[in-house]
Design a protein around this nucleic acid. Structure first.
Lengths: 123, 123
DNA sequence: AGCTTCTTCAACCAAAAGGTTGACAACGCC
DNA sequence: GGCGTTGTCAACCTTTTGGTTGAAGAAGCT
């Protein structure tokens, strides 16, 4: 597995079950059994999912008798957000400049056929 | 793999090589060979990575002779950002309310827990 | 002490991910 | 038409992932 922190966080959230757990933990802490209840997998599988989330720093665990309550650690989200914003910002800046450039081109230069409409909607 | 869009985006970015490609594509479009050049893998491997990124909607490809320029599609980032912000926000809101609650607990309620007592704020 | 509950560990399995090599399609250039 | 360039497809291999079952550790309950 890729050892760097960002890869671990993205990989952890690439699984819908784990994402759902995170969503539920955003509402309230929970025990492993509570977390496992809605899913159609064994408790052991959920325990494994939690190890992945914990390895990514997304959750932490405390001790309450034989229970190991799971707690969401929201700070790690910042790692992702920073990465995302950095490159999105960079890309959008680039497109903006490209648009500016196209605006300055006089009509008679527009000879090539129009570019195929990409999936992206403007702005 | 999990077919839902969000899972695909997270999974695509869970790989450091793919993340690096995205970072470079944020600066400028590039051909497959250009993209492959810095990495110590075959062009075929890079082509596979691009298929993953394309499947996640993170890049698109056009046609320029035998070249297939790769173009970053920044909009998909919003999907992630929305998800992240939603649950981070929820979690932080919850912690905030918990803090508020702890602030309002009068001294005499603090009986059993070995937690350090609050600042003496009477009713 | 003995039982029950909550959780993890270990071994195993099937499928997916990431890589390789080799063949080949598409296109521009002589 | 033949050749180099660019990129993909197919087959294959190895490691990782996500799941299972079964056993066991840890802590509360009687």
């Amino acid at each position: 597995m890729a050892a760097d922190a960002l890869s671990q966080v993205f990989a952890a959230l690439a699984d819908p079950t784990r994402r759902d757990m995170v969503a539920r933990l955003a509402v309230a802490d929970a025990s492993v059994n509570e977390l496992a209840e809605p899913y159609d997998v064994t408790v052991q599988a959920v325990s494994k999912h939690l190890k992945v989330l914990e390895g990514a720093g997304l959750v932490s665990r405390s001790r309450d008798a034989q229970r190991r309550p799971v707690h969401l650690e929201a700070e790690v989200f910042d790692l992702m957000t920073k990465w995302i914003e950095r490159y999105r910002g960079q890309a959008e800046e680039r497109y903006r400049r490209l648009d500016d450039l196209l605006q300055t081109i006089p009509d008679d230069v527009q000879s090539s056929p129009p570019h195929s409409p990409q999936t992206g909607a403007p702005t």
